[in-house]
Amino acid sequence: HNLTITQGKLFFHYNPKLCLSEIHKMEEVSGTKGRQERNDIALKTNGDQASCENELLKFSYIRTSFDKILLRWEPYWPPDFRDLLGFMLFYKEAPYQNVTEFDGQDACGSNSWTVVDIDPPLRSNDPKSQNHPGWLMRGLKPWTQYAIFVKTLVTFSDERRTYGAKSDIIYVQTDATNPSVPLDPISVSNSSSQIILKWKPPSDPNGNITHYLVFWERQAEDSELFELDYCLKGLKLPSRTWSPPFESEDSQKHNQSEYEDSAGECCSCPKTDSQILKELEESSFRKTFEDYLHNVVFVPRKTSSGTGAEDPRPSRKRRSLGDVGNVTVAVPTVAAFPNTSSTSVPTSPEEHRPFEKVVNKESLVISGLRHFTGYRIELQACNQDTPEERCSVAAYVSARTMPEAKADDIVGPVTHEIFENNVVHLMWQEPKEPNGLIVLYEVSYRRYGDEELHLCVSRKHFALERGCRLRGLSPGNYSVRIRATSLAGNGSWTEPTYFYVTDYLDVPSNIA
């Protein structure tokens, strides 16, 4: 807008934040220059609390790290170098490059900038070799853009010569660093050979998330399962459950009422301010606690030095998902009996873990797994792929695949051998790939016309006998059925096997 004052003059007093240069501009645009008398524009009460600059400061050096910015700028000295009290560095987070010096300023003089007072450097006698002032900004957020400017702080001049310097606002972004852990990993099994893994992005990506790394490792069953005799009275049979499938998407929606109208769909109840505040506090606490764990609990591995020492970490090797089922080394339970199943799973520490690289999504279907087997899954978020990966501390989750139908069934015939004193040795093959492992066998036998009897055969007993022995049988026709019990439950009964026990007292003698 054009402003013209045809008559009258300007009068400025007691404006401590208004620089004289701005008042002189007002004289020019209003056409009143030359009308004012000496005392109409006070030299001592206008701009006496402001830094009124008329020179431009330029930054000469900028260096960044993930949490620091090192700045240096060209030296500046007023005509009387004693008038320079120091520099004021202003900075704040700036997602967009549209910041002005006066953003967030209120009537009390406060604003949204963080201000650092910096002492002037030592003055050199040689004007050509003056030290460049600077400042190291610490405690910054990774991968965050900051708006920065600097200006001088000078003393009051009796001659009211307006001098000083100020830089333009520059924008500097800190470097990326390792992201925080992925949030809320959930693993479920939808079949006997697959596990579905879902997660949420890290709360602090500290860069642009480029991919996720998912490692999985087959877990050995508890050692007590191999040692305890679950045929003993009072000892509860062990059981394991597989990871249940995901709930429906509708039930997972946030901010939804727990109660549904019987007449149909209901609208979600909005969260109160107290609920939102509580969630923010919980989120802040979780982030602080995660940072504490990362800094205190997890110790970084030592990389190899120039002395030739090897990095103890196993090298990563990509495998196809079809090879995942046989990740671990199978060892027989008892070496003397080769027909026992290889369900003991000690994992070799030198073995390469299978892994998958996930790009542009937060889910993965891990296939080719062994049925009813526990897996430990390790999830890392990465925001750099080359020249070397920059990934987060791992988040861990466990899951067990679903049982395989008929995996616990005894394959092959049940054979028998009759000894003296009416002892019958029953023999059968253990299931080759049971659900988890076989903890015991149930032997059901009966003599024709009598009630059915049951015998429990422990895992250890089966390994020693290759089956079991029935003792003290009365003469007669017998039928026997056997079924295995694994961590997933009972298998199917075998087809009945028949044998006849004679009275050993009636056996004919070869003595003449």
Score class of each variant (00 low, 15 high):
439 V>N: 05
409 D>I: 12
292 Y>K: 12
265 E>P: 05
464 L>M: 09
254 H>L: 12
472 G>Y: 07
384 Q>K: 01
330 A>R: 01
359 V>P: 08
480 V>N: 02
509 S>V: 13
479 S>E: 13
389 E>Y: 11
205 P>M: 12
224 E>H: 15
408 D>S: 03
257 S>F: 14
366 I>K: 03
322 G>C: 07
391 C>F: 01
423 V>Y: 11
206 N>W: 06
460 K>A: 10
277 L>K: 15
230 Y>Q: 12
500 Y>W: 13
448 Y>I: 14
207 G>W: 02
291 D>M: 15
443 V>F: 01
448 Y>T: 15
303 T>P: 14
443 V>I: 08
272 T>V: 10
229 D>E: 05
242 W>P: 13
487 L>Q: 11
241 T>G: 12
221 E>H: 13
459 R>F: 08
414 V>H: 01
267 C>H: 15
291 D>Q: 11
232 L>G: 13
476 G>R: 00
394 A>V: 06
398 S>V: 12
395 A>Q: 14
395 A>I: 06
362 E>V: 13
376 R>A: 07
244 P>R: 13
307 T>H: 11
217 E>M: 01
295 N>G: 15
307 T>A: 07
236 K>N: 09
324 V>A: 12
313 R>E: 15
506 D>P: 15
258 E>N: 05
297 V>S: 09
485 T>W: 09
425 H>R: 10
464 L>K: 11
471 R>V: 15
278 K>N: 11
319 R>Q: 15
260 E>Y: 06
231 C>K: 03
289 F>M: 05
243 S>L: 10
263 A>M: 12
462 F>G: 02
376 R>D: 15
304 S>C: 06
244 P>M: 14
400 R>V: 10
399 A>C: 11
380 Q>S: 10
398 S>M: 04
226 F>C: 09
443 V>Q: 00
266 C>V: 15
439 V>A: 14
304 S>A: 04
484 A>H: 00
213 L>T: 14
325 G>C: 15
462 F>D: 01
242 W>V: 13
447 R>C: 06
413 P>I: 00
461 H>K: 10
298 F>N: 09
273 D>K: 06
387 P>F: 11
329 V>H: 03
494 T>I: 03
504 Y>S: 12
363 S>L: 10
207 G>A: 05
245 P>C: 10
330 A>K: 15
342 S>R: 14
342 S>E: 05
389 E>A: 06
417 E>Y: 02
281 E>I: 15
216 W>L: 12
475 P>W: 10
282 E>C: 11
277 L>A: 13
354 P>D: 15
245 P>Q: 14
403 P>W: 12
413 P>T: 11
471 R>W: 09
377 I>E: 00
301 R>T: 14
433 E>C: 14
392 S>V: 01
415 T>N: 03
225 L>V: 09
329 V>M: 12
318 R>G: 03
210 T>N: 04
478 Y>G: 00
396 Y>K: 07
342 S>M: 06
337 F>Y: 12
405 A>V: 09
379 L>I: 10
342 S>T: 15
210 T>Y: 05
242 W>G: 13
344 S>C: 05
428 W>F: 03
323 D>S: 04
319 R>L: 06
491 G>L: 01
402 M>C: 15
322 G>D: 15
339 N>L: 10
240 R>E: 11
476 G>I: 00
349 P>Q: 03
317 K>P: 07
421 N>M: 14
254 H>V: 06
344 S>I: 05
291 D>G: 14
345 V>K: 07
393 V>P: 01
468 C>I: 07
409 D>P: 01
374 G>S: 07
374 G>D: 10
242 W>S: 14
226 F>T: 08
411 V>R: 14
300 P>L: 05
213 L>R: 06
263 A>T: 08
504 Y>M: 04
493 W>F: 11
335 A>G: 07
311 D>K: 15
254 H>T: 13
455 L>C: 11
339 N>V: 12
305 S>H: 03
256 Q>V: 06
229 D>G: 10
480 V>Y: 15
231 C>W: 03
492 S>C: 05
422 N>K: 14
334 V>M: 13
353 R>L: 13
368 G>K: 06
392 S>G: 01
333 T>S: 03
425 H>I: 14
235 L>G: 06
361 K>H: 05
